[in-house]
Simulated assay, not measured.
Amino acid sequence: MKTAHLRPELSRPHLARRVAAEFVGTGLLVTVVVGSGIAAQQLSAGDAGLQLLENSIATALGLVVLILMLGPVSGAHFNPVVSIADWLIGRRGNGLPGRDLGPYLLAQIGGGIAGTLLAGVMFDTAPALSTTDRASGGHLVGEVVATAGLVLLIFALARSGRSEVTAAAVGAYIGAAYWFTSSTSFANPAVTIARTFTDTFAGIAPASVAPFILAQLVGAALGLGLLFVFYPTAARTAGNVVIPVEAP
């Protein structure tokens, strides 16, 4: 007798739990980014290199922890380009269902903004639109490179069956990309939007947001293109991005 297999969507935690995990995860990620940026600015005034080092280390470590903590619930996307890519390549398989994409994106953006506000409260910094203009040609190329590498890394690890190292690998990549990209590797539309609400070390001016997000989408497309060059059957494991979701 053949054993029946549950459809992928039936083995996932309830959507409300997954959306809550994406909201909290993205929010705490932005809290780490913005909060460590404010702390670095206060503790290492006048030394931009040391400030960036402190900010990048905190972000890399915080991201690892958040992926490990919430990955089994929602996959730990915490990033609209990851969710969009997961939906695109997994439409006929076990990727993110189309009906779940909108709630994921809203949770990520809303969580990111909440994370910025939380960091401001902790450091007694009032919310304010950033005045840091980042939309130069070099910065945009940096965002394309950072996002392409991130998408390629995440989906390649899922396809090659090495999801157990994804948290560490993603954290290491983002930490490194702070330094090898001119944009300091936002690579995340939700984080980009959220960082407009702080006029501190981690801020980005509202006028820079649209060019940054466009560059991130281009980078995501490039990353997916490279993925299918190297791993033609990557769509089969879309459900394992970023971390395989565990049934309740």
Rank of each mutant, 00 (worst) to 15 (best):
E54W: 07
G75W: 04
A146T: 12
T125K: 10
L70P: 00
P97T: 10
I57W: 12
A128G: 11
L152Y: 06
Y178Q: 06
A107L: 04
T125C: 10
T131P: 07
T147A: 11
P103W: 08
I109H: 08
G62V: 01
G75H: 05
Y173Q: 02
G98L: 15
G171M: 03
D133K: 15
R162E: 12
V121H: 11
Y173S: 06
R91N: 01
V73L: 00
G115I: 06
L63W: 06
L52T: 13
L117T: 01
L70Q: 03
L150H: 07
G171K: 00
G75A: 07
I84W: 06
A172W: 07
G137C: 11
A128W: 12
P72H: 02
P72A: 08
A60C: 09
G115Q: 08
L157C: 07
H77C: 04
N79K: 09
Y104W: 04
A58M: 04
M69G: 13
G149K: 00
N55Y: 12
S136W: 11
M122N: 05
L129I: 14
I57L: 15
G98K: 13
I109R: 12
P97N: 12
S74R: 00
L96M: 04
Y173C: 07
L96Q: 00
I109F: 15
A58S: 08
G111D: 01
L140E: 03
L157F: 06
Y173H: 06
L53H: 10
L117H: 01
A85N: 08
E143M: 10
A168E: 04
L70A: 01
Y173I: 01
T131I: 06
I109A: 13
F180Y: 15
G120L: 10
N79Q: 09
V73Q: 00
A126W: 05
G138P: 10
G75I: 05
L152P: 02
Y178W: 14
V165F: 15
A156E: 02
E164M: 04
I67Y: 03
I174Y: 10
L66P: 01
S163D: 08
F123P: 09
L66D: 01
I84A: 09
A177I: 05
G95E: 08
A58D: 00
A172C: 13
T166L: 02
G111S: 05
V151E: 02
G111L: 05
P103S: 14
T125Q: 14
E54N: 11
P80D: 03
N94Y: 03
G149V: 05
V81S: 05
G95Y: 03
G111A: 05
D124Y: 12
A177R: 01
N79S: 10
G95P: 04
G137R: 12
A60G: 06
R134Y: 08
S83T: 09
L106F: 07
T59N: 13
A148M: 13
G90K: 07
G102H: 11
V82A: 02
T132V: 14
S182R: 14
N94F: 02
A156F: 02
A128L: 08
M69L: 15
G111E: 03
E143F: 06
H77R: 05
E164Q: 13
L157P: 01
A85W: 02
L61A: 13
L157N: 00
A156D: 04
S182T: 14
L101F: 11
